[in-house]
Amino acid sequence: MRPIYLIPLALFLFFAGLAGYQLTQPKLQNIPSQMIEQPLPEFTLQPAFEGLPGASRSDFVGGQPRLLNIWASWCLPCIAEAPHLERLEEAGVEIIGVSIRDRPEAVASFLNQHGNPYTRIGADDISALMLDIGASGVPETYVIDAEGNIRYQHIGDIRTDTVPLLLEILEEVR
């Protein structure tokens, strides 16, 4: 048999192997936002509950860099990240929350139970801001510099080792 007839077989084996390899790879979970290094879009969100004011773009402009934390009272990883947000707050970081599809009473009882690291919480009932900044899940945390530009995105809950990383980035973008 002429070796040229082996080419289709080799091609088939190559693609079958590629598909097999990809099946063993974990699914792409994190869809990074393309909005990093872009200005934070214009937005105004009503207060998520009675205890704190709502949030808008202008709350991010001036002074120090801040964190924008997208969360929800129905989100389980948000419970896990609550103590780490507290540590960031204790380190002097201003954290502005945006709660997704949440009821005021649920927000209040979550904060009662797990602590309140926020200075403001805006209610995003239709994921409008979430879609506008390219967030694909809850929780996500963004570093916003004092000019109101998005500088960093953390996808998923903040863990023990995320805290120093975020503090470092907040210092860098100052």
Partner: peptide, 17 residues
């Protein structure tokens, strides 16, 4: 029950118009 709570809470908000 945990996952149900989660879905119920999420569905408790009316969907976007």
């Amino acid at each position: 029950t945990l996952t149900m709570q989660q879905t119920f809470a999420q569905q408790a908000m009316p969907p976007a118009p």
